[in-house]
């Protein structure tokens, strides 16, 4: 669906995307995971044919965005990071008008709008203006709008940033349904739980480069341990206990208020730490997540 080699985007002397290679297969949900400024959005804008690439090769649905942007855009759906709905029109009008840009007749556009209102659970708000809707509703409407042309490829740029947990789960459910219908999706996110929930395969991006690639479980297996022991200390004192626990883990990360001990057996490491006289304010044993993968790869946390 999308294939890129050496894809690059520069703004003046700043390199936002630094020669990345990606291959997105039909039907899969592909993720870009990375912190703000990693180059995820710039990559998405190049794929959605609204930003010309500075270098490398890119094919979307087998076509070159530089030459066949309109043809590509006719067959993809885009959910931008920032909602750009017409806040003064009604919910239904937003969908109907948008469908017209894809060469869909007025009456067919109306039918499509009603169908998508149902999908986005907004039918009872059809005649409401967009302005007073909640963030979650606006986001659902934006996603519904991206589906007016029944896209073969759906691009979602941080689809749930800023939403409450309930709204996020509702959105994830809709995206999962689309996947079952065979719609290929590309998602950017800086939430590891979102990436784990939705993505079949993902790349971890940092400073414009891809630093790792695989399925969530592969990445965790490759770059982290099975379990993580978190020892929380009064901020500033965490460093003092490092010598005592160093030998208990494969690897240690020092965060401002805690130590992360990477080990196959978290409980075992915890009791060993207690035996050595380490007294954290609190402790937690959990399984590894993509957050740990990211920390390992970049030395930084995903969400500051």
């Amino acid at each position: 669906m999308v294939s890129a080699t050496g894809l690059t985007k520069t703004f003046g002397s700043f390199t936002a995307v630094d020669g990345i290679d990606i291959e997105v297969r039909p039907g899969e949900v592909f993720g870009f995971l990375g912190p703000n400024g990693a180059g995820k959005s710039s990559t998405m804008r190049m794929i959605s044919c609204v930003s010309p690439r500075s270098g490398g090769d890119l094919a979307v649905l087998g076509m070159d965005p530089d030459r066949r942007a309109a043809q590509i855009k006719a067959r993809i759906g885009v959910v931008p990071q920032q909602d750009n709905l017409d806040t003064e029109l009604t919910v239904r009008q937003n969908l109907q008008i948008y469908a017209r840009y894809f060469g869909i007749s007025w009456s067919k556009a109306g039918e499509k709008a009603d169908e998508l209102l149902e999908f986005a659970q907004l039918t009872d708000r059809a005649k409401s203006r967009v302005d007073p809707l909640s963030g979650g509703m606006k986001r659902r409407l934006t996603i519904a709008r991206s589906l007016v042309n029944e896209p073969e490829l759906l691009l979602l740029d941080e689809p749930t940033t800023g939403l409450d947990p309930q709204a996020r789960h509702l959105l994830w459910d809709r995206l999962y349904r689309l996947k079952q219908e065979g719609v290929t999706q590309i998602i950017t996110t800086h939430y590891m739980d979102e990436a784990e929930q939705l993505c079949d395969r993902l790349v971890v991006m940092d400073a414009g480069k891809i630093v790792a690639e695989g399925s969530p479980s592969e990445l965790i297996a490759q770059y982290s341990t099975k379990e993580v022991l978190e020892l929380r200390f009064t901020p500033g004192t965490q460093q003092d206990s490092v010598p005592q626990v160093e030998a208990l883990a494969d690897r240690i990360e020092v965060l401002p208020d805690r130590l992360l001990l990477y080990t196959a057996d978290g409980e075992g490491a915890l009791s060993a730490a207690h035996q050595r006289g380490v007294e954290p304010v609190s402790s937690l044993v959990r399984r590894s997540t993509l957050e740990d993968v990211f920390l390992r790869l970049t030395g930084r946390q995903l969400v500051d």
Partner: peptide
């Protein structure tokens, strides 16, 4: 599970 989009490119004058 092939999906075919119903979107098309409108003629230049119609945009």
């Amino acid at each position: 599970m092939a999906v075919a989009s119903i979107g098309r490119v409108v003629p230049a004058w119609q945009g």
